[in-house]
Amino acid sequence: MSDRRKANKLRRSLFTIFFMFAVTFVFISVLSLIYVLTRDTIRLNESLVVKRAVLYVAGLEVPQSGIEADTLYQERVREVKDGQGTVLYYEILDAPGGSIQSYALPVPGAGLWGEIGSVVGVEKDLKTLTGIEFIKQNETPGLGGRITEGWFKEQFRGKRWPLEVVPEGDPTGDQEFQAITGATNTTNGVKGILNDRLAKAEQAIKAPE
């Protein structure tokens, strides 16, 4: 190959490398800028997920707007933490600065695919549920994933521990809840998680730390 052609080939290769770097740099810069601009909003949204869940399980009306939800949360919910700052349980007040009307407990637990993270609300008797909300789940979409559907969650309001499962569509007593057809494992998982958590609820609330 002649010298000139070699030089051209080198120039083209260099240009290729330069081009890749330039394009990558430009795009990543733009993305980083957008990320920095939205990062706070995203973090706020993520913290709101838990707060909204607590409000929902307490039976309170959850405002659409993030700011209102946050305000309501600050007024009516008191977090009880352990020495390391992890929230052990939530006290729901009947009015801002009022007395405790119910509790909410964070509930980690095993599902089919991984954790089912939920929050469960209990009355002061620690045996009757005020509600349940799922924060994290990776169950099969369309099957186990349906635990997040309204009808499934709502049925828990007012149920008493210990819980049993009945087939979907059957009438339920105050200690029974309907399963999701085709998602037996997930449903039983939920039952196990709830019963387990509620069994230990007394210890969790009466004796923090």
Binding site: A110, L143, G182, T184
Partner: peptide, 10 residues
């Protein structure tokens, strides 16, 4: 394949 769902229990 949905029929396999019952094979896994945690």
């Amino acid at each position: 394949f949905m029929g396999f769902a019952g094979m896994i229990t945690i």
